[in-house]
């Protein structure tokens, strides 16, 4: 067993304190220690985006981040986005536009799309495509995912808090 370290961070708005091996990835901590399984393992090397989370407002592939590096930070996962009313239009738009098929990439897409829209609530189609470039989807051909995010951007990104 590798060396354990205790870390404190804010996870989806709630202060957490966990003890994790120093070799553990943030993805493994979320899934195996904290049992938040919405964040997915797709490749383990930061190439597919299925494990996208937000760390201090930046989007990160949690499979290539050490769990211990969450110490002192604000971490948001799909579970946080799902419970956040301001992102309800985004989630509904994904559903209504048919941007979900097998759904395995969807949590990462939703987190990444929320990040793109946070940065630019009026992002245009091209900017949205670029923003989702790091998230692979094998089912939809991306069009309906992009359409869904564009529709939310056209509507002003997110509802007023």
């Amino acid at each position: 067993m590798s060396l354990l370290r205790e870390i404190r961070f804010t996870l989806n708005g709630v202060a957490r304190q966990v003890s994790v091996p120093v070799t553990m990835t943030a993805l493994a901590m979320l899934r195996d220690v904290l049992h938040l399984t919405g964040t997915k393992y797709g490749c383990g090397e930061g190439e597919c985006g299925a494990c996208t989370i937000l760390v201090d407002g930046r989007s990160v592939n949690s499979c290539v981040m050490f769990a211990v590096d969450c110490d002192g930070r604000q971490v948001t996962t799909i579970e946080g986005i799902a419970a956040d009313a301001q992102w309800q239009p985004l989630r509904e738009s994904l559903v209504e536009h048919g941007g979900v098929q097998c759904g395995f990439c969807t949590p990462g897409m939703v987190v990444q799309a929320s990040h793109v829209l946070s940065r630019d609530p009026h992002a245009d189609r091209q900017a949205i495509k670029r923003g989702l470039e790091g998230n692979l989807c094998r089912c939809t051909g991306y069009k309906k995912i992009v359409d869904a995010v564009v529709a939310v951007a056209d509507a002003g990104g997110k509802v007023a808090p």
């Binding site: 919405g38 996962t77 579970e79 994904l94 559903v95 979900v100 969807t106």
Partner: peptide
């Protein structure tokens, strides 16, 4: 008609439990 997938809402909120989960 354009009918959204029945399981899409739970997939879009990360609640769907695949075999990995």
């Amino acid at each position: 008609r354009r009918i959204p997938k029945l399981d899409a809402p739970e997939k879009a909120s990360g609640q769907t439990r695949y075999i990995q989960d």
